[in-house]
C-alpha cells in the first residue's frame, strides 16, 4: 500500500490522541475554573478532529468509499464547542460572580441584566 497515506494517518492518530489526553490532563491540572474551560474547548476539539479526519481517510482508503459522516462530526464539534464554552462561562459567572472589567459602553454585560419576565 502507499506509504505516504499510512504515515499521514498514523501522524494524525498520534496527534489526535495526544491532544485528547492533554485536554483532559489540563481539565484535571489547571487551578481555576475559568482556566479549566480552556483545555477541553481547544485541545479536545482538535484531538477529536484529528482522529476523525484520520478515521475518514482510513475508511476511504480501506473500503474505497468516502465516509463523509466523520467529516460532518468534526465540523459539528468545531461549530458547537464555542457555544458550550460560552454557556459554561455564563453559568460560571452566574454562580460564583468573579470580578470582571466594565463593558466600556452604556449597556451592562448581557448576563448581568435581569431576565425579561
Amino acid at each position: 500500500m502507499s506509504l505516504g497515506i499510512e504515515i499521514l494517518i498514523s501522524a494524525l492518530l498520534v496527534i489526535g490522541g495526544s491532544f485528547g489526553l492533554i485536554g483532559s490532563l489540563g481539565l484535571l491540572k489547571l487551578p481555576e475554573p475559568m482556566q479549566r474551560l480552556h483545555a477541553p474547548t481547544k485541545a479536545t476539539t482538535v484531538g477529536v478532529g484529528a482522529s476523525l479526519i484520520a478515521a475518514a481517510l482510513t475508511l476511504a482508503w480501506q473500503t474505497g468509499e468516502a465516509s463523509w459522516q466523520s467529516v460532518m462530526i468534526a465540523v459539528f464539534l468545531f461549530l458547537t464547542s464555542p457555544l458550550s464554552g460560552l454557556m459554561l462561562a455564563k453559568a460560571h459567572r452566574h454562580l460564583s460572580r468573579p470580578a470582571v472589567p466594565p463593558t466600556g459602553t452604556e449597556a451592562p454585560w448581557a448576563g448581568d441584566t435581569p431576565p425579561k419576565a
Binding site: 480552556h38 460560552l86 455564563k90 463593558t103 454585560w109 448581557a110
Partner: peptide
C-alpha cells in the same frame, strides 16, 4: 482566549 459574555447592546 475564550468568549465569556456579550454586552447587552452587542458592542463589546
Amino acid at each position: 482566549t475564550l468568549t465569556a459574555e456579550f454586552s447587552a447592546d452587542n458592542k463589546a
